[in-house]
Design a protein around this nucleic acid. Sequence first.
DNA 1: TTTTTTATTGTGCACGTGCACAATGCATTT
DNA 2: AAATGCATTGTGCACGTGCACAATAAAAAA
Lengths: 359, 359
Amino acid sequence: MEKKSYTIKDIAKMAKVSRGTVDRVLHNRGKVSEDALIRVNEVLEKINYHPNLIARSLKNSKDYYVAVLMPDYQSDAYWKTCYKGIKDAAKEFKSYGVSIDLYFFTMSEAGSFMESFEKILEANPDGLVLVPAFSQEAKEVYQVCDQRSIVYSTFNTPPEEGVEATFVGQDMVQSGRLGAELLHLLDKDASKFLIVHINDEEFENAIHLQKKEKGFRAYLSERSDIEILRLSIQHSDLQDQQAEIRKFLKGDSNISGIWVSSSKAFAVAEVLRDLKLKTSLVGYDLIEENTRFLEDGNIDFLINQNPRSQAFFSVAHVAEKLAFQKEMPEEHLLPIDIVSRENLIFYLNNKRNRTKLLI
Amino acid sequence: MEKKSYTIKDIAKMAKVSRGTVDRVLHNRGKVSEDALIRVNEVLEKINYHPNLIARSLKNSKDYYVAVLMPDYQSDAYWKTCYKGIKDAAKEFKSYGVSIDLYFFTMSEAGSFMESFEKILEANPDGLVLVPAFSQEAKEVYQVCDQRSIVYSTFNTPPEEGVEATFVGQDMVQSGRLGAELLHLLDKDASKFLIVHINDEEFENAIHLQKKEKGFRAYLSERSDIEILRLSIQHSDLQDQQAEIRKFLKGDSNISGIWVSSSKAFAVAEVLRDLKLKTSLVGYDLIEENTRFLEDGNIDFLINQNPRSQAFFSVAHVAEKLAFQKEMPEEHLLPIDIVSRENLIFYLNNKRNRTKLLI
DNA sequence: TTTTTTATTGTGCACGTGCACAATGCATTT
DNA sequence: AAATGCATTGTGCACGTGCACAATAAAAAA
């Protein structure tokens, strides 16, 4: 019943060799007689040895330094949530000697991305967590990190194909499919849906939005001949955005459901409320503006992109790789949560929505 | 920029005392002159000391033994998922010297619960994780554990009011509310909903089902005058269950939506399919029988009770308390996930849907 | 003053690992 | 036979903590 965990000393005794020899076998750095090798391996097979990670990491106990490169969180509620995830991870791993510093860039300026990266390099970090918003620049980053053997992981935006960087995030195509499904479930006799993109960046650069739209359309094309309208809004001012939405909705009255591909569903919700329209509405992200309308019933579902967990895990992978030599996964896809009024509370401030990683 | 983590030795040097004195101050076990006390405290305040948990747990490195007392997982897909969570936790904490053994009981026999507990006591464990399905018997368990200072936590079934045992699970009332909301969203013009209970235990003993029903009714009474029918099935044989459902549905044809309070939604789904009814259906748990009907469209939503995470965290709390002296939370409520066809895959076998706990 | 008691402070060790380096055995060369 | 080289093996140390115990200083008793 009671399993004992064996130590190197135990193994040495059992194999009638010294600790050093066992160590040499375990890390196979040669200089072991065939005789001893066989004896040690015999014991190892019998007992199924697992090294004590605590002792190991105490031994390698140095202070690791991890830099995070992400969009400025002042500007955006979504990134603020990521920031929280980073902070939680920082708190978590502090006791294991990992300290974390943040560096920011502006979404509209690729230059600011590389500028911050230069600063990071000056600080000479052991690890890097980044949002590779600019794929060309990011490639350079990966190269430099490989060269200096800086451990890195990405989140939110998937790295380009072919790059073997750890990615924590969601399946964007599936996310779009889910949006379509929810609208479809809300009104099974729907005849017309509207896609709304409201985004700072050019749509052509926003690969994640393209993937989402692709998924949205794919779902519907598989099971109905619902007409799909599309409205892409570039204004950065809320008033202008809403004016355009209002104009569009007045022009086309019998839309059954609206899917907003970004976190700006609240902009549409307000217009719907003012126009007293009962159109179904599905959007993304649990930012305060959205959750208010979810509670009032103007938004039916919000799809949670789990920004907090994305950021948290991205840091966690790097930190545990450094501190415990744990392997980093190539891809860590988070669930795409459906949030309605009645389960909203569990996705807000959920400090414990996190995970020790497998060894 | 670079934060150093201070050690006791550092503090001793700064306060011009020895390691021993710092140690005495930190664990305030007296025998320190006022003079030294002040100096050490000054340093402590300045540097915000956090002990190195790795070193600490290496020091206290013994093998901990944790017993898990849960329903037999052979009988039930739900408990099988819990079993997986336990196994994952076992794997995770093995490297930290925590080994885990399982003991089972039968849901229908309170006696088997205490029998297994007796066996557990013989093994003399340091920690216990249990599903307190029988509240009276559980009380005795808590008492014995307190007496022998066995660390314990519960999951799935909340312990009785007034007991201060760590509980990992979900808010049952809210879970019922969510079920009602989903049905309501699926058909906003609904006039009649049906509650179906299919359960092994007596309804009177199944407090969690009672709470769920309460939440279901509460939601609807707040915002509509939908008629609520109720069908409680006691048969343990699937054929008998379905016969009763078929009879009921044939008798009352214009039901807008059905909510099954347990994991037996598949039984209803099959009947609906055979009768070619398009009634909305919401149930619980991602067991294979259910997910098949979810994929076929006979079930609209499944509510995920997160059995795997419940079990995992319940073990994790005990293990981290033992190995790292982390505090155990009084209550750890997991999110109530809404699962549809398009996000189902992320909730199946999601090895990483877990969390390192806060310190 | 010397001895004993008491209050405070300093030091040694173990936990398990991983590395550096010292020590041993054995065969080959001088 | 002594000296040298090489292959293999054994040992010491550090990581940071927490506890036991030794050492010191100061006060009280002789």
